[in-house]
């Protein structure tokens, strides 16, 4: 690019180029409750983007407004300031090509419906019955729940229920999958299984994933990129490229020196964020 171009023009050209690859742009999100001195600032200018096909993990200390952030991105909550652009359009309500996997599977699967009906439910608007059924069965198959469709969610273990919730998200065939600490409620063994499951289905469905978690290991293990949040009022403190080889492996990947490096980097950032939050909290 010639040097004599006006700085403004150069910037706007970069923006357009970025738009093409960026599926999701979170632009200067602010959320606060109350007014004036009494106001509680939850998000203070959270700003990052997710490219198509990318797996981005958002990590932050507890109480950093991760769920609030995700609700804003999902169009379930209107931010006080800033916005989210998804596929070129500002999010004003839940977008069509977006699905959310909630933290608490026992409250997001409907206990009065069988597993298959739960997975089919979001497809009722768009597909005739036979196709609905086929797609739901395929999704259940891909999360290892083939043949379990006739059971009720409460007849499944916690890990299997979260698999069913993931299957519901997959069957919906969104362009981006938002996951809000989806494995926080399951035991460690199940969590490892589910992490690998998510990596597998991501491969299979070529899905873009925005994954919120408080678990540093999980974030580094899963992601292409980790966004580290500060404590409330929350902003992005670091954007870490995870240049670990694919496919990931619970043993081999975690034994790499690079994994430890990345993990420590994120860890240190979060510790800083925490102590900063403590100090500003005392003030």
């Amino acid at each position: 690019m010639p040097n004599d171009t006006a700085p403004g023009a150069e910037r706007s050209m970069q923006d357009t180029r970025a738009d093409a690859a960026e599926l999701l742009q979170i632009r200067d999100l602010n959320v606060s409750y109350g007014r004036g001195d009494q106001a509680a600032h939850i998000l203070a200018g959270v700003d990052f983007a997710v490219r198509r096909g990318e797996f981005v993990c958002v990590v932050g200390p507890s109480g950093s407004g991760k769920t609030t952030l995700l609700r804003c991105v999902a169009g379930l909550q209107t931010p006080t300031g800033g916005d989210t652009v998804f596929e070129g359009e500002v999010v004003a309500g839940p977008p069509k090509k977006m699905a959310v996997i909630f933290q608490d599977y026992s409250r997001s699967l409907l206990p009065w419906m069988r597993v298959l009906a739960n997975v089919e439910l979001p497809l009722r608007n768009t597909l005739p019955k036979a196709q609905r059924r086929a797609r739901a069965e395929e999704a259940l198959e891909s999360v290892g729940l083939g043949g379990k469709g006739a059971l009720y969610p409460w007849q499944l273990s916690g890990g299997m229920q979260q698999r069913a919730a993931i299957a519901r998200g997959l069957a919906y065939q969104p362009d981006v999958l938002l996951m809000d600490e989806p494995f926080a409620a399951v035991d460690a063994q199940t969590r490892i299984d589910l992490e690998d499951l998510v990596l597998r289905v991501r491969e299979r469905y070529r899905m873009t994933i925005l994954f919120v978690t408080h678990d540093i290991d999980e974030a580094v293990y899963l992601a292409d990129r980790v966004i580290v949040l500060s404590g409330a009022p929350t902003a992005v403190t670091e954007d870490v490229d995870v240049d670990l080889p694919m496919p990931r492996d619970q043993v081999a990947t975690k034994a790499l020196p690079r994994y430890a490096e990345l993990r420590n980097r994120v860890f240190t950032r979060i510790q800083e964020a925490k102590s900063h939050a403590l100090v500003s909290g005392r003030r």
């Binding site: 609700r71 999902a74 169009g75 379930l76 309500g93 839940p94 069509k96 977006m98 699905a99 959310v100 909630f102 997001s108 439910l121 979001p122 009722r124 608007n125 519901r168 919906y172």
Partner: peptide
């Protein structure tokens, strides 16, 4: 939230 995000009518 679930019902809204899956855009149920």
């Amino acid at each position: 939230d679930m019902a809204r995000s899956y855009r149920l009518t």
